[in-house]
Design a protein around this nucleic acid. Structure first.
Lengths: 158, 158
DNA sequence: CGCTTGCCTGGAGTGCACTCCAAGGTCATA
DNA sequence: TATGACCTTGGAGTGCACTCCAGGCAAGCG
């Protein structure tokens, strides 16, 4: 199933007016009724996982075809993108569901959402710092094994 | 149980001669026979986890007191430190066990160990880049909720 | 029409990394 | 010497995030 994934579709009709990142969708708005297997191809998630996300409320109910099959939209794809980012921060799925609920509750939850994102942001900064620390340790050890492979590293499993 | 955690003990007798990072141990070498609960306090791991690490071969057998209780050494602490770093990279425990086995097998495994660390290093770099990407997305969204809290973000759960 | 392929559902199963339990031995302090 | 905190073991249990299964519906094609 070859799709036009990667097509640059300028989504001028969307509502994210300001500081919008250049989003690209496989098909322009209006023709965005993707089957589950197309979304699998776009996102790398499995169909199981997509259905499960819907079941637990991480996505609101997806449009259906007249026979009941899921038809995903461009904004579903955007949401999945964002969920993927949150997943990379190590945020538990339950917290993502909480965020999704806040979004569904409407504008009154702006403050809560902002706080949640800011706390996530702090977590990300911490994690980056930890990883850079780890990188330094790895570089040091790789140095031992590479250059001075002879001199014993002070390493043992105990 | 207050300990002298954080004490700067110059471990001049250790074998990591070159490019050694300034390691600090709660007690100097020679008096380093920590109980499991001391190690819990130092590392933040649970006693359960420490015993489990030993069982699965992530640590080689720990010294025991005359009655069979575990007594951890400074180099055990160093190893746990390193394991903590590897854990932060998202490396599966099974891979860490593999690395531990390589260390136990001796110098003949230098090449393998180096390759493992280098592949881990690449993973870490990738992860840092992903997180920085995520950070940009978060900052953008936080901007929406903060400054122009009124203008609708192009966000919905679908 | 039959065949294949794709999709549907609720519920059960999987793998990972712990996490806890029961039953008992040990150690420090009063 | 007694009390209570700490330590031991093998094996079972937990929580998370999927992952799969059985049984069935629907569409496209020779």
């Amino acid at each position: 199933m070859q799709t036009t994934a990667g097509t640059i579709a300028p989504n001028a009709t969307r509502t994210d007016i300001c500081s919008a990142p250049p989003r690209r969708h496989p098909r322009p708005d209006g023709q965005d009724r993707y089957t589950i297997s197309e979304v699998v191809a776009f996102t790398g998630l499995t169909a199981h996982t997509l259905r499960w996300y819907e079941r637990i409320g991480l996505m609101s109910h997806i449009d259906r075809s007249h026979t009941g099959q899921r038809r995903y939209s461009n904004s579903d794809l955007d949401w999945l993108d964002f969920v993927g980012k949150l997943r990379m921060t190590g945020m538990p799925v339950a917290d993502m569901v909480r965020y999704a609920e806040l979004v569904r509750e409407g504008e009154s939850t702006y403050q809560d959402r902002r706080e949640l994102l800011e706390s996530t942001r702090r977590d990300v900064l911490t994690r980056i710092a930890e990883l850079q620390d780890t990188l330094a340790v790895l570089d040091r050890k790789i140095g031992f094994y590479g250059d001075a492979g002879r001199s014993r590293e002070g390493e043992s499993t105990r």
